[in-house]
Amino acid sequence: MSNKTILTLLNEARKQLKARNLDLNAAEILLETRLGIKRTELWTSLDRTLEEKHELQFKADFDRYLNGEPVQYILQTAPFYGYDFYVDENVLIPRPETEELVLAAEQFLTKHPQKTLLDVCTGSGIIAIALKKSFPELEVSASDISPEALKIAERNSQELGAEVELRETDLVKAFRDESRTFDVVLANPPYISTGEKGEMSAYVLANEPELALFAENDGLAIYERLAAELPNVVNERFWIGFEIGYKQGEAVKELLEKQFPEAKTFIQKDINQKDRIVVCSNLIS
């Protein structure tokens, strides 16, 4: 194999990406991550000739991407809230929208310090771990029904130095059975309606776990079950935050208002001005 420069490799890749209408950044992300350099370093090293092992690695990675595998699964890493999390096909790829739920919780906890937090449907553990990193004194627990997802969350917890209690359970059942309660409860559950599959990217459907994506009853089934259980697992004074689909704000708000009529419940929009978070709390005015 004749060794190529970074520029030659990227130009060849960009032509293929453009022809297939794929993300033009994919090749740079693959290359910079494998080489262990930043994007700016990549740009200033375009005339660098790659070693054969690096060129072969890039070709293998790039072929996987062209065949429909997400970059994050190929590299087994995804950035979230300033940290790099391990991910594979057993968990969802972290979305920027979820960072807004973490930010909302961080802003609340900064003003109103609490002792305990539960993250339901934790997946790779991104929410629980990011908040544990921000508030080391906070006792953080996280649950998921998927043992495979919890193994990944445990790996991320260890690699990022964030001590989080992880429990395999259906929503909050294990905590309810133990009569445990929390000051803060967060959840980013499956919320896509099964009827929306036809509108979704084939890329997502082919790669990401359906268990973490879809819910019955127009995507509201998990919220309905969780809202009904929350009175059993929140303290007398509490803060609840749910990530939602942008069409689900009013429905989820009503579910929480029914369970907690004395609390303040409101919908918060994301950076794109779409409904994204529902907060329910009796700790804020």
Score class of each variant (00 low, 15 high):
N21K: 15
E139V: 03
G161A: 13
T40G: 06
A60S: 15
D144G: 00
L56E: 15
E97H: 00
L230N: 09
D88P: 03
A26L: 12
P189D: 01
L22M: 14
D144N: 01
S134I: 01
R167M: 09
T181K: 12
D61L: 08
E137H: 12
S2I: 15
P94A: 07
F108S: 03
Q268E: 10
V252E: 05
P231W: 10
F80T: 06
R155D: 03
L103Q: 09
W239A: 14
I222W: 07
E69R: 13
I267D: 10
E224C: 08
K269Y: 08
A19K: 14
E69F: 11
Q114A: 05
I244H: 03
S134N: 09
K264D: 05
K59G: 08
F135A: 06
N67E: 13
T110G: 08
N25Q: 10
V140C: 07
R276V: 09
R14Y: 11
D63R: 15
A78P: 08
D61I: 06
K173Y: 09
P231N: 09
A206S: 15
Q114E: 00
N21T: 13
L7W: 05
G36I: 05
V120D: 00
E32V: 08
L66S: 15
G36C: 03
S2L: 14
D183Y: 02
L10A: 06
P209K: 15
E55G: 13
V278I: 14
V233G: 12
W239T: 10
E28A: 13
